[in-house]
Design a protein around this nucleic acid. Structure first.
Lengths: 212, 212, 212, 212
DNA sequence: AATGAATGAGCGTTCATTCAT
DNA sequence: AATGAATGAACGCTCATTCAT
């Protein structure tokens, strides 16, 4: 309803791109608005006109990064999988692909949780909500696949999802560290060994590590 | 009566306590030396006399928090366990106890990794080393127990340790969030349901979630 | 109306003027950037934007003061002189004129040597070079005149130049002290007695004080 | 009349020695009371008890350095000279000896004039007076010798004394720079060439540089 | 008398934010 | 709308001075 200010979308996009990259690389405090403006090839004043203050800019960067993934995401990756392990492998492979494609956005979201405490309370709630939504989406996509499984007595779908969540989360961090240490990697194929390793582990979680 | 010492241990302790708490709550950059001095009820000058500069103070806080746990830690918790799950449960219960007893120290160490990039390079190396040492200690304590297990074909002790690492790590964060949201909890007994839940999950990882 | 320039020359000039005056009056350490900003009627931040730090500001003040004289200096004063005494008198009269015209600049340069040891090493080199250049210029201007003189046995042009250097140097200080004590003096004519006195002395040095 | 506080003369002397050396080496501002106390092997508190504040300490150091020379000075050096040049040479040689013997004191007095402006007005007056007294002493010692000279028409004893003052002053600075650059020099004999050079110049001033 | 731990005003410097153009 | 010069609060840190012991 409220008439939006006429904003140049190209400039706004450049600012967000710069913000995403620099906040992801350096964190919240060490990134200066000056830097972002310069990298976006706009004036500092315009950054404040479009985003009010540094905190809002950070939040906008976070939202944009999240949107990036939400827009691009291909749900069929989750849906067209034979079984749970295959699904997770597909999903992980897909995430790595996204990470290779949008490294700055990916990094920003990964570090966002951590920087929450450095932001005013109001922002923290927003970040929180975003992550909950992400988590819910993943659950939603996984639930139908898990529902088909035949669980042992005492085991539940929720338990398995939670455990898988911890493992994949840990693995994503491992991969991120690996990619950061090996910037020459640009193709998903080069990550295949790690993906297969994760597959093995997930299979073992399904069927059990221990003889008996 | 009390002889004035070159370094008053009471004051130094107050400064470290304040530093641990504030760095843990707010992170490195947003915490100001003034704040720490005020909370420790000493002058700003004294903080610099005792710790040279803000970076060293952070490092000292980190070291003190780490020492706290290293000193107090009871290795028998790991060693006197019937099986792997029992061991991890004992360890987790023990960690929760420490977290309840030294919440600020615990939080500081948990966030230290994350703040690494915001610290000068020299500090990063120190933090890194500390965490490697911690990880090595855990591995050392766990290895003998895992060695006794009978693994299924294709499963290895290393795989299991890695997976367990991800799960317990995720669980520790879950518990930390839970405790932060429920400050009324002061006794380990109140956390018993969560611990039992973790136990169930670990058992399932050992034996498998899926029928057949 | 006035276009806002990246560096407002009026402001920069005000800062330099203030810096020259205050550094000259008080020396390097006792002069505070706050003071300079206030006297120049700009914010402290702007001083740093224009001059990076206090040391560079001092150097800029020094350079500006030096430039002032280099630009204004009229070499014909040295060149169109009948003999050595006349030349030195002309030069001295000219220096007094400059001192009356740019007292702060003059004072700053006079005290610069002395403050060298209180400046960071990098600045010392610069100051040193500036003074050597000044000395070289004076020598260059004087050499042709001295070369025409008929020296007594045992006397050399170099000796005479050195002695004259000590005397004029001492005299310049004397005049500077005199002007500082008599701020009502604004015209070179009022200094004529001192100049004539110096002329007499230089003549005596040429021909000798002592009978026989 | 007023009962003096019981002061330990040995400690006071150590403080003054340290103050003289450090103020001479580093100047007023860059020298810290901490440093002086440490070098004097007394507590910082005692320095303030004995000298009230840093400024008074500086003044005391100056006075002590001056006293050092006043006490030690051998007036016969001036008095037992055949003629003016001999007298000045003797005096200069003597000053160099003092400079070698009490380098810190000598340096402090040489730089005092310059640091005057960095001290509060009250101190400046004191320093001023000290230098005037020194000058008067030199004049008093020289006057009888100069009085014996047979001056050319237009030349006066006062003129000659002034000119000689400038030259010797310039020369003392030259020697001081030379000694600072050649710390291996410890004996007056090593300075003899410079002294002879000065002698030559003074003779030339007496009799004139120029033929005819 | 003597100490040196403790203080805090004040320094140089940074950077988010404002505003004249 | 867009700029970037200008601001000033706030930071980390120093050091003359004080005062409990």
């Amino acid at each position: 309803m409220t008439k939006r200010l006429p904003e140049d979308p190209a400039k706004k996009a450049r600012m967000l791109t710069a913000a995403i990259q620099l906040f992801a690389e350096q964190g919240y405090e060490p990134t200066h608005v000056d830097q972002i403006a310069q990298q976006a090839a706009v004036s500092k004043g315009l950054v404040f006109k479009y985003f009010t203050n540094k905190e809002q800019l950070y939040l906008a960067a976070l939202t944009a990064a999240n949107q990036q993934f939400m827009t691009v995401i291909d749900r069929t990756v989750w849906q067209n999988s034979a079984d749970l392990s295959a699904m997770i492998i597909n999903a992980t492979r897909y995430k790595i692909q996204l990470q290779l494609q949008f490294p700055a956005e990916f990094n920003l979201l990964m570090t966002a949780f951590v920087h929450q405490q450095q932001l005013p309370a109001s922002s923290q709630a927003y970040v929180q909500k975003m992550f909950v939504a992400n988590h819910d989406l993943t659950s939603e996509l996984m639930t139908p696949v898990v529902a088909l499984l035949q669980f042992k007595p005492g085991a539940t779908a929720a338990d398995l999802l939670e455990v898988i969540g911890y493992i994949t989360n840990g693995y994503i961090h491992k991969i991120q560290r690996y990619l950061a240490a090996h910037p020459e990697i640009t193709k998903i194929e080069q990550m295949e060994p790690l993906i297969q390793d994760l597959a093995t582990k997930l299979k073992l979680v399904e069927s059990g590590f221990i003889q008996g």
